[in-house]
Design a protein around this nucleic acid. Structure first.
Lengths: 198, 198
DNA sequence: TTTTATTGATTGAACGTTCAATTAACAAAA
DNA sequence: TTTTGTTAATTGAACGTTCAATCAATAAAA
């Protein structure tokens, strides 16, 4: 059975299975067995690769954060760098196909709730929150003065998270994510136009 | 030992203990024992009063929703009924002292995450989401035209939930709730002024 | 006494972790 | 090429723990 170089592939398979289980059963009902069954492996393999269930869950969160970062970087590379375009990239990355999938959306929310009482997850989640805010703040500050940029960045960050949360819990997530993204972009545009300090 | 009114008092004691346990230990680590210990009662009492742990958790959520409704009604009664004032009431109710307490904030987030996979909680949470939106929509529609009112209401609802979520997860919730409330009100004011259709 | 409320020890199911046994891949020897 | 020895990945049964629910015993009120 052992094939060399296959380690990363198996690790990823387990991470995928973890998200699938959390999305389907909830973190509450996600067990070592519900994960390993979905990955087509045995229960013991999780301790072998991740040191335990907790390690796998943290690895899955790190994977999702990594995905989010990738999506942002990809989009940023394809713009001329104007503040409006950069801000739209940030919004789009947070509403990308992967992020809005029921699998990712449910997993995010589960992570967030659990992060309140688990320092390992909390740290990762703080970093993500701070990054979203500072990315927004940077682009707003190129057009608005300091205090306006701060306010606009905080509002946009809350708007993104809020729409995202409401969509994840919505009965029709597809439609909710779509209008959420549009209304975020609309807020960004309005904020730039109406608060410009020239 | 039946004394009138004692039953409700004990039920409330258990609900308080439930929120305290969820806030302190997380829903993950909240057990029948962690609740009953905090309430100074035995473990069996939970089944007696609520039919089981799940029943108690749903009762606690219902209690928090009821609190939110009360806060809104109280504030609404103390205004002249102008759209701006009514909208500010809605924001204030969602950021009231009770709602922003670590106890309530952590409990809300735990409920939301769990509601994804438990129909009983999901139903309650849907009702709450819909109520926030329709309250906002009603007041915006008295000043803005239909499509503007819809957009503003959805944005405000997301803003409230988003600030609320970020505050609950924040390292400094006190400050985060405070500026969140202010920035929500600012958005409402701006939306009314800049989109007015006269 | 009768009724009702409350306790807390007990039960059985479910869980994460562990580890001895197994199996496949690879390397060395024939 | 075939055989044999070595390595490391993988399995899954067993173990100890934890939990929600149950219910017989107890206490208090009527």
């Amino acid at each position: 059975m052992p094939k060399i170089g296959i380690k990363d592939a198996r690790r990823q398979l387990l991470i995928d299975a973890t998200m699938a289980s959390i999305a389907e059963l909830g973190m509450q009902n996600t067990t070592i067995l519900s994960i390993s069954k979905r990955a087509g492996m045995s229960s013991g393999i999780i301790s072998h690769y991740f040191g335990g269930k907790q390690g796998l869950i943290e690895a899955a969160l790190r994977y999702m954060l990594h995905q989010l970062g990738d999506e942002l970087r990809q989009r940023m590379a394809r713009t001329d760098g104007s503040p409006l375009q950069r801000l739209n990239c940030i919004v789009e990355a947070n509403f990308s196909e992967f992020q809005r999938s029921p699998l990712a959306a449910k997993t995010w929310l589960s992570f967030w709730a659990r992060s309140m009482h688990e320092p390992g997850l909390k740290r990762l989640q703080q970093i993500n929150n701070a990054r979203l805010y500072s990315n927004l703040r940077y682009s707003f500050a190129q057009v608005l003065d300091a205090s306006e940029a701060t306010a606009a960045a905080r509002q946009t960050a809350a708007l993104v998270d809020g729409f995202w949360l409401r969509s994840a819990l919505s009965l029709d997530p597809e439609e909710s994510f779509e209008t959420g993204e549009q209304l975020c972009k609309r807020f960004v545009k309005d904020a730039l136009n109406q608060r410009t300090n020239l």
